[in-house]
Design a protein around this nucleic acid. Structure first.
Length: 666
DNA sequence: ACTCCATTAGAA
DNA sequence: TCTAATGGAGTA
């Protein structure tokens, strides 16, 4: 029945078309600037360039630079953005017409278009990939909804006073520069215990008071909530926050408010680095060493690099830093791109807690099971005394209960029989399971010596909480980490166990930084820098007069830097070490990974003159590193882009991942 | 990825 | 001689 109807319909329509043969209505190009240069959304590397289309007369008004369009490309309807209108085209062949203007909202501003191209060039990626990161998916209903603030220029907030910036020798001068629209660029190291969201908010509102836009990027939603509150407190000024978890409609609504200039300040997590604020005057980035600032999607841009590039291109001021300082930021200072914005030594001495090493013998720490046994009596005494005055923060590098276990007799680490991954215990009476594949390892026996009993190597936060609770009966124990992060704790005695980055905000009487050797011993180029960054973040929650005990060998430079609260000196030393080793950021490095054949083919397409390390096997694939001196960084990216384009044009299969400045190069 | 087109092999 | 099939180039 349905079939018959369908056949009839087809017959009728074919008869109809036979009677009136479909003649394509002749399209007429627009009178002025009939050519539209389009960034077409195609994933192919060898097609990473604009394509010209003719604007039909009827789309002349709507086809403005920045709008989304649909065009026919290789016979397919594809999305794209108009980059510009032009009088003519360099293209020899026949131009096709734009199919449709999707909406009249110019979502790709000239600044972001230029930035996206620069980011693609910097990271050997395609413009289409970067635009996908920079411009949120359209939400038509939101776009068509009446504006919340119709055609209104945002009121300029009054310029705030310098507030806490007065405590930095160069703080007032930096704020003045921002207020006067000068492109001052600061490598910022915050005063111990600084209420940094307020400092960022004052800088941003100072920028807005001059009528210019500001972009603020922080690592996570918890930090963003603090910045949001600080912005509201400083100015009650018009700002929006942008996070990934808002949902398409709300996300697009806020993003449009930024685009339309209804607000001057956009604060958010990573993706907000592309927020299209009007007349950019300031970029601010908190804790640039946090790996959340690294975008995991191609071409893997890092917020620090993107914001630095953005500030540079837009002649905007920049405020980048944290309690610590990365080697990358030290590099920007050494290169003269940024000036150090840091407290005077006297201010540091006055504001910092007393930091003491609590473990002379890291070996002992590793061998003893219980935290109470691992902790010297100094730590227990300090904790007991501090608990009389307020909460005590305990930073534990690993979540879980026993994050790594070993044979109790021969001490070989317990591994999964199926995949070789490390076994863990998730609770006091649980069966060991594999951290990689999740397989249960009931009835485990040591493959080396046949023994059946286990002992702890890495004690997780949950087990630490359990033990400390027993050691200090009657004291409330709270844990923060993983899926359940506590935002803040009140100023009353409690033991607060947290994994790094999940420390509740509070005024702690003391902090214990446990198992420092586990942080420092990670097989990573950045292990020491990362350990210091996490320690400083926790120690900054202890005001002057409090005590911080760090459970690590005090002869190590990172531990010394914490004790002396000297992240700037440490970062300079770190940068020097990297230069000696030939590692980023002293050089430019790219990681090329994929199947052995694909990596070999990409490397064979790479122009000469670059140093190639490897390839070496990494998780069932191979990875090679390509190294170039810093000044040749752009050239390296261009060569990698060209090599990928050649492979893509020849339709060579096998995905190859090209990542510039990979976070981990070891 | 997809389309188009040219060259080539196969069958009448 | 015509048609179907396969490979390569170009995508506006």
């Amino acid at each position: 029945m349905a079939d018959t109807q369908g056949a009839q319909a087809r017959a009728a329509s074919s008869r109809a078309t036979a009677r009136t043969p479909k003649k394509p209505k002749p399209l007429v190009p627009a009178a002025a600037n009939p050519v539209a240069r389009i960034a077409v959304d195609i994933p192919l590397v060898h097609l990473d360039r604009p394509f010209d289309y003719l604007v039909p007369e009827r789309l002349d008004g709507a086809a403005r630079p920045g709008v989304r369009v649909r065009v026919r490309f290789a016979g397919q309807l594809t999305d794209g953005f108009i980059l510009e209108r032009a009088a003519g085209s360099g293209h020899q062949g026949k131009l096709a017409y734009l199919e449709r203007v999707v909406s009249s909202e110019p979502v790709l501003t000239p600044e972001i278009a230029g930035l996206a191209r620069a980011v693609a060039d910097r990271y050997a990626g395609t413009l289409a990939d970067v635009l996908r990161l920079a411009i949120p998916p359209r939400h038509a209903a939101t776009e068509n909804a009446p504006r919340t603030a119709p055609e209104r220029e945002p009121g300029r907030p009054p310029r705030p006073g310098p507030g806490p910036w007065q405590r930095y020798p160069a703080g007032g001068a930096f704020l003045d520069a921002v207020g006067e629209g000068r492109p001052a660029r600061a490598a910022w190291t915050a005063i111990p215990g600084a209420i940094w969201p307020e400092e960022i908010a004052r800088a941003a509102v100072t920028c807005a008071s001059a009528g210019r836009g500001a972009v603020i990027v922080v690592p996570d939603a918890r930090d963003l909530a603090r910045v949001d509150a600080a912005l509201a407190a400083v100015a009650g000024s018009a700002h929006v926050t942008l996070t990934a978890d808002l949902g398409p409609a709300e996300r697009y609504r806020r993003w449009l408010a930024v685009l339309r200039g209804e607000v001057l300040i956009a604060a958010g997590t990573r993706a907000a680095m592309f927020a299209p604020v009007r007349d950019l005057g300031l970029v601010a980035l908190w804790d640039d060493g946090d790996d959340l600032h690294a975008e995991p999607r191609a071409p893997y841009p890092n917020a620090r690099e993107v914001l630095a590039l953005r500030a540079h291109r837009a002649s905007a001021a920049a405020l980048i830093g944290g309690f610590a300082r990365t080697a990358e930021l030290a590099q920007l200072v050494a290169a003269g791109w940024a000036r150090s914005l840091e407290p005077a030594r006297a201010t540091v001495r006055q504001a910092a807690p007393l930091v003491r090493p609590a473990a002379e013998d890291a070996e002992l720490a590793r061998d003893e099971g219980a935290v109470t046994a691992r902790l010297p009596s100094l730590a227990l005494r300090t904790t007991r005394a501090a608990l009389a005055r307020g909460p005590v923060l305990v930073q534990v590098p690993r979540r879980g209960y026993l994050a790594a276990i070993a044979c109790a007799r021969c001490r070989a680490q317990a591994r999964c029989a199926r995949c070789g991954g490390p076994l863990q215990l998730t609770g006091p009476h649980e069966v060991p399971d594999c951290r990689w594949c999740g397989a249960l390892a009931g009835g485990w026996t040591c493959p080396h010596c046949g023994h059946g009993k286990l002992r702890a190597i890495v004690v997780g936060a949950a087990r630490t909480a359990e033990e400390l609770g027993r050691a200090f009966p009657g004291i409330k124990v709270r844990t923060s980490g993983g899926a359940s992060v506590i935002p803040s704790v009140p100023d009353e005695p409690a033991l607060v166990i947290a994994t790094p980055g999940a420390e509740p905000v509070g005024q702690y009487a003391a902090a214990l930084l446990l198992d420092g050797w586990a942080l420092l011993g990670r097989p990573s180029l950045r292990a020491a820098e990362e350990a210091l960054r996490r320690w400083l973040a926790a120690a900054a929650l202890v005001p002057a007069g409090g005590t911080v005990l760090v459970h690590a060998d005090s002869s190590l430079p990172a531990v010394q830097a914490l004790i002396r609260w000297d992240p700037v000196n440490f970062s300079e030393r770190e940068l020097g070490d990297r230069a000696e080793l030939g590692f980023p950021p002293a050089v430019r490095m790219a990681a090329v990974s994929g199947s052995p054949e694909a990596v070999a083919s990409l490397l064979s397409n790479l122009s000469d003159g670059f140093e190639i390390l490897g390839p070496v096997p990494v998780d069932e694939q191979v990875r090679a590193l390509v190294r170039a001196p810093r000044p040749a960084g752009l050239e390296l990216a261009r060569a990698l882009h060209a090599a990928q384009a050649a492979r893509s044009a020849r339709k060579e299969g096998g995905g190859v991942r090209v990542q510039l400045d990979p976070a981990e190069v070891i």
